[in-house]
């Protein structure tokens, strides 16, 4: 740290300095490598006049290698916008596809099974009602003493009730079959989905960026970065 300060001060004797103000996007996470030596995050810094190489990088973004020329006794404002890395865009698309597919796989069969269960329940209730109607009609035969009513009962009411009973029973069988199939499909799909791993993202730009400085980010290193930056200003 002390050596760095001395170097800058010694060179300042011969050259003037200028201020560089960096407007970086993304704002909070962009760091840069200055003149192939110093990894920094400061937005404003005083530098010796002349060209300086900056390599900007932020997580998930593509590195930007550029030269900024410092004008003495002036503030040079530079706006830096880092574009997303192709790998990240591809990863994001893959992740979106995975999440959409995962959501569909998890929820669609469950929704179908739920709807089928409701349908089966409603069919069961209808079947029960049809059964009671049929039983009532059967019992009515015993109590009726009106020949016309008996003829109507045997010719219309009981056949209609039987048809309703058969329809309700068939509907229940179909609905419960759909429910069983969809419940099985839900279980099967969820079991299969457990094996599917979400896509992972490897920030290759970060590796390249850190390779430029031999920097490995960590708690100790982060402290060193802050200390060095302060000494420059």
């Amino acid at each position: 740290m002390l050596l760095g300060t001395i170097l800058v001060s010694a060179r300042s004797v011969a050259q003037s300095t200028g201020q560089v103000r960096l407007l970086m996007e993304p704002a909070g996470t962009t760091s840069y490598l200055l003149d192939n030596e110093h990894r920094m995050v400061q937005r404003e810094l005083n530098l010796l006049e002349g060209p300086h190489r900056f390599v900007f990088w932020a997580p998930e973004r593509k590195m930007l290698d550029t030269t900024i020329t410092v004008v003495p006794d002036r503030v040079t404002e530079v706006r830096i916008v880092l574009r997303y890395a192709e790998e990240y865009i591809s990863y994001r698309d893959d992740l979106r596809r995975y999440e959409r597919g995962h959501g569909l796989v998890r929820h669609v069969p469950a929704v179908v099974a739920g709807a089928a269960a409701i349908w089966a329940g409603a069919s069961l209730i209808r079947w029960g009602k049809a059964d009671r109607t049929l039983s009532d009609a059967e019992e009515a035969y015993i109590t009726l003493a009106d020949p016309g009513d008996i003829a109507d009962l045997k010719g219309k009411r009981i056949p209609d009730a039987k048809q309703d009973f058969r329809n309700a029973r068939a509907q229940f069988i179909v609905a419960s079959g759909v429910f069983a199939l969809s419940a099985g499909a839900t279980w099967f799909v969820r079991e299969r989905a457990k094996d599917r791993q979400p896509p992972t993202y490897e920030d290759k730009e970060r590796i390249r960026f850190e390779g430029l400085t031999g920097w490995n980010e960590g708690p100790g290193r982060a402290g060193l970065l802050a200390t060095f930056s302060l000494s420059i200003r």
Partner: peptide, 8 residues
């Protein structure tokens, strides 16, 4: 169902 005497 034929055992009801009122049945035609």
């Amino acid at each position: 169902l034929t055992n009801n005497p009122f049945d035609p």
